[in-house]
Design a protein around this nucleic acid. Structure first.
Length: 259
DNA sequence: ATGCCCTAGCCCCTAGGA
């Protein structure tokens, strides 16, 4: 079974790339972030034609947005992260995909340390933790994946030494990931390897002229609960996709689970 | 060589991304 996450930086701008990638990789589940696509414009038919069911949560203004595509029938879907009734940002999509609960997240960027956006990011992560603690069981098969906008540790940072402690690499943000792990999640890539320098995001400004896979951040993460840890066969970043024409600034990350 | 990208909408500039 293959489960993927991909921040596409606008689904409408990259629909042909996404459908071509689905045909090439044939994942069972693909979680998209930053679809920037209002619900009434969501291209459901393009995915249904490839055999996927779709769930999506977009914003009228075309910011943020998440979608989950699944080859097996989707069960109950939730698009509201509890805890703040006035939060209109669409960054959360929980859906049952067969035996798995799949939680697709687009964690807020945070803009700058100490900014309002930064506190929104930390508050959002604490709401996510509260949701897991209150409504999910770590003994059940669950995948939490998406664009976390946090590099878990120094091995995941390749954008300059001054980045340690900065946005995406600060103790506050990493502590929030630590709370998720304490609930009962494992970073699937770290189940397989302790290798440094595996990145999933690459700045357009740095890499447009010539893509440099050695200069980026690993911020697109796939967490699994304990029952799935022994089944983690592989976690791979599709750098070929990032190196192509008109790419997203994020590469897809693909988890393979043994049956 | 010190790099100036990309997207959407408020659409020829600005905001947000990370």
């Amino acid at each position: 079974m293959k489960i993927a996450t991909w921040n596409v930086n606008s689904l409408r701008a990259r629909l042909e790339r996404v459908t071509a990638w689905l045909e090439r990789q044939r994942p069972d589940v693909l979680c998209l972030q930053e679809t920037k696509c209002p619900d009434e414009q969501f291209p459901s038919a393009a995915f249904e034609a490839l055999g996927y069911e779709v769930a999506f949560a977009g914003e009228p203004g075309g910011l943020n947005g998440v979608a989950t595509l699944s080859r097996c029938p989707l069960g109950p879907v939730r698009s509201e992260l509890p805890g703040r009734a006035d939060d209109a940002q669409r960054r959360f999509l929980a859906a049952r995909c067969g035996e798995l609960e799949v939680i697709n997240v687009y964690v807020p960027n945070g803009q700058a340390l100490g900014s309002d956006a930064f506190f929104y990011k930390l508050d959002w992560l604490s709401r996510l933790q509260a949701y897991l603690v209150g409504e999910r069981e770590p003994t059940c098969p669950l995948v939490l994946l998406g664009d976390f906008n946090i590099a878990p540790d120094g091995r995941d940072v390749g954008v300059g030494e001054d980045s340690e402690g900065a946005l995406h690499c600060s103790p506050h943000e990493r502590r929030a990931l630590g709370y998720l792990e304490a609930w009962g999640l494992r970073d699937a890539l770290r189940v397989r390897t302790d290798q440094a320098g595996i990145y999933s995001w690459f700045d357009y400004r740095e890499t447009t002229r010539r893509f440099d896979p050695g200069r980026g951040l690993r911020i697109d993460l796939i967490y699994v609960t304990a029952p799935l840890v022994p089944r983690v066969a592989d976690v791979a970043v599709d750098l070929e996709e990032r190196a192509g024409e008109r790419p997203s600034d994020h590469a897809p990350v693909l988890l393979t689970l043994t049956p």
